[in-house]
Design a protein around this nucleic acid. Sequence first.
RNA 1: GGGCAGUUAGCUCAGCGGUAGAGCGGUUCGUUUACACCGAAUUGGUCGGGGGUUCGAUUCCCUCACUGCCCACCA
Length: 881
Amino acid sequence: MRKITPIRMSSEISKAYEPQSVEEKWYARWLEEGCFTADPTSTKPGYSIVIPPPNVTGVLTLGHVLNNTLQDVLARRARMLGKEVLWLPGTDHAGIATQTVVERKLRKEEHKTRRDLGREAFLERVWEWKEKHGGIIIQQLKRLGCSCDWGRERFTMDAGYSRAVQQVFVELYNKGLIYRGKRMVNWCPVSLTALSDEEVIMKAQKGTLYHMRYEVVEEPGRFLEIATTRPETLMGDSAVAVHPKDERYKSLVGKHVWRPFPRAQIPIVADEHIDIEFGTGVLKVTPAHDKADFEIGQRHGLEAIDVLNPDGTLNELAGPEFAGMERFAARKAAAEKLRELGLLVKEEPHQNNVGYSERADVPIEPRLSEQWFLKYPSVEASRQAVASGEIAFRPERWANVYEHWMTNLQDWCISRQLWWGHRIPVWYHKEDATRLHVAVEPPADEANWTQEIDVLDTWFSSWLWPFETMDGATRAKFYPTDDLVTGPDIIFFWVARMIMAGYEFTGQKPFSNVFFTGLIRDMQGRKMSKSLGNSPDPLELIAKYGADGIRFGLLRIAPQGQDIRFDEKQIEEGRNFANKLWNAARFRQMHGPSAPDASLEGVALSCYSTEILARLHTLIAEVDAAYGEYRFNEIGQRLYDFFWSDYCDWYVEAAKTEILGADGAAKASSLAVMDYILNRFLRLLAPFMPHLCEELWATMGFRAPGHGKPFLMYAAWPTAEAPQGAAAARERVEAVYQSVRLARNLRAEVRIPSNKKVGFRLKPQVAWAEEESGTFARLINAETVELDAAYQPASGEPRVLTPLGELYLPLEGAVDADAERDRLEKEIAKVVKEIETVKRKLSNESFVRNAPSAVVEEHRKREGDWADKLSQLRKMREALG
RNA sequence: GGGCAGUUAGCUCAGCGGUAGAGCGGUUCGUUUACACCGAAUUGGUCGGGGGUUCGAUUCCCUCACUGCCCACCA
């Protein structure tokens, strides 16, 4: 193992923490030393996470930063808890997205389409692109500090993985769960492929409801009025439908109407599906272009007339004047023609929901086509696993969303008319198209067969991710995985399907916990998107604030599964916190070397030391509890508050009395306590800010019992002992600190500049006031605090009652008896009010009877405290005259 | 049309049955030998409206309002 040489701090070292070089240095060291490598033969208990594989075309977004930082935190803490950790990385081939990117490039640079190249050549291009430009995001994740086992990076189109995908297809086919059929699917006229229901996004549209009329064949001169939003499909109408109970039209059922163009007689049918209330209560039935219409067509044996080409233009069945016309142009043209024929009754504005293709962002076209479908496997086991808590969803409410989807499953359209993807392992016999060969290997007499040209939906490969990324030995050690961290937006696409695949193909759940993060939005609450340009570049933020800064900033504002409004200020806070820690360590270093083990054996502690150690003890307990509930923001908040406020603002400032004082033993004690705290705190913070903590750990020369490697990232997770005498210390320290706050306030009120040293007088009311007067004086920036039990203040000298006693500020010329009288009287009024409140509460019998005794006790104590304070204030008031 | 979240200080958010919190912002002071990416003090809230349960409600229940998200074949 290589020796680590820490950079020694010196007074020349920069006052501000400069993350760039530190972060890159440590990341390189960790990699060199194999710190991220998972060993399946280890005797330590295993812990594993698989990364939600980002698209190979992807670049890092803030969403990725949050998501992967959370995974990194979990992985790093698990290592410190003594687990053998596997965080398995990789990328997704992302069928449509990647194909589109390469096609666009081809068009731009060579003015060619993929068809110009042909399938084989095009795929070669995609692979070339993938090798060259794919996986940028992997590099970006490294810059963020992700401790993935990069040696195990997987891609969903790796040879072995692809084979597994095809095997799964064959297996499901043989089980009768996969079938081919001509069905109504969601067709994207831009990507020219079928899509699953999940890839369709419903959007509210402002459109027009056209009222038109068809003449009844059997009763010339009588017209049926029909409302439609899609007149361009009327050429594909093969019936009109009314509700069987609709009295208005009962007599017409079984008769016919004239479809105006191409002119034809079509029947009037009765169907339960019709909503009597909507429009005119008459529906034009276009079985080829609407899912509901298709079903009506099935029930009534209607012809499905497909009037659209795959690209969304109309075909010759629509008639010569429409053939070749784009669908939305045709809508206007059809309406216009109806108007000319006198068949358009009216047009009215209408809002309805239209399905859009998630990728291409155009309205999808319901289209009848031959596709492969999957009946989901292991549904009941999967549903049960989440319902019973065998797989825990956090926040829990997502379990309901999952449950709802799982109980309303529709068969999954898994074929895609793309080239980039896993080719469906099916061959059709050239002589006899009904003969199929379904296997991973092509048939022996391959020349007599043609392979299916469609590929599989990308999610049909990603659902195997938690186990197909692992070899046998790895699986034995690390499967099922422990935590999955992902966004709720892919709960159906990915999470639910992985659960089903896990049970179906491994007989086990694929993971035990799923943590759903929130979505990161901009300050206006909008989704981050490329088109809005409101998505900050995380790498720029890293350059500006450091990886640790962005990690900490984001973690601290990421609530449990709630959406997050992003504000760069929050990242700035992360950077500032890093700087604070850096400087606190620097301060400690300025007073000599630290003890590596930072033990407090046999060290006599000041009350301030005892108090901060007690707080550290509490902190560790709280952090552990918060980890147990995945409350990352709370962990961040606790660490921040403890360090900045309790440690830096109070403890270090108080300890300066001893550190800068003459008592060698006392100084050594305070420094040892700082070492103790820093040693533990760096370990606690390491998962959040790994680079900085590792740097300081090395600089300070700390050691800790560890789990194999001489890095902080392998140091044991800290435990803290509650110090002896914590309660007494806390009481004393709190009295001092409270007195400090009051004294500082007094200074400010009397307008003494913060840097001006002044002399105070204290009439002590506690026996130990003398012992703490030095620290007290330091904290209030006093020249002196003279203790004088018999002190007679000049009338009008600024004064305040503190827990240490009456405090006076003898100032030349600033004596104002009226002001002091006012101040005291205001204070007295406040106390009187407090006492009244407490008294009222205590005199309420129901309160005393019903409230928990601890609460009642607290009120009693409070009453006593206030009463004491009041009597002292009154005495001071009398003395003032 | 169903379901789920959210509504707390000017802004972003914690708290979720016992005296309203943080950060940022504002105001005032500060070259106090770690840190101006800092320190101190201070300002600022009938905890969305209305009911109810309770000795007590920002916290639990009901209801309404608005905001956001998910699901759903009303053309």
